[in-house]
Amino acid sequence: MERFAGRGRLEWWANQSICLETYDVDLTVTDDAVGTWQATGRHAHALDAPRREGWDFLREMDPHFSLAFPGEDRGGITVRVAEDEDGTLTLVEAADRDGSASVTFDLT
Rank of each mutant, 00 (worst) to 15 (best):
E11V: 00
E2W: 10
A95P: 00
D31V: 13
A101K: 11
R7F: 07
V92D: 11
D106R: 04
T36N: 11
W12V: 03
L27V: 00
D62N: 11
Y23T: 07
E2C: 07
A95N: 11
A49Y: 06
R51E: 08
H45P: 14
D48H: 07
F57M: 08
V25I: 12
R7W: 05
R9H: 02
R7L: 15
V34N: 09
Y23N: 00
A39E: 02
R80F: 11
I18T: 15
M1F: 10
A49D: 14
D24R: 06
A39K: 03
H43P: 02
W55V: 00
L58S: 04
H45M: 09
N15W: 00
Q38F: 02
G71M: 06
G99K: 03
S102T: 13
G87S: 02
D73K: 12
H43A: 10
P70V: 00
N15K: 07
P50A: 05
G35A: 03
D84V: 07
V103E: 06
S102D: 14
T88K: 04
E72I: 00
D106F: 05
D56R: 15
Q38S: 12
R52G: 02
R3Y: 05
L10E: 04
T30E: 15
L20H: 07
D106E: 12
W12I: 01
T90L: 04
F4A: 13
L107C: 10
Q16V: 14
A5S: 14
R7N: 08
A44D: 08
G76H: 00
L107M: 13
Q16M: 12
D98P: 00
L91H: 01
G8A: 15
F65I: 06
M1A: 15
E11R: 04
V81M: 04
E83R: 01
D26F: 10
H43N: 10
E93Q: 11
D84F: 06
G99R: 05
G87Q: 04
A33S: 14
T90M: 01
A14K: 05
V29H: 03
V79W: 04
R97F: 15
W13K: 04
E21P: 02
F69Y: 15
W55K: 04
D62M: 02
I18C: 13
T88V: 08
W12R: 06
E2D: 15
L20Y: 10
G75P: 02
H64Y: 12
R3F: 09
T40H: 15
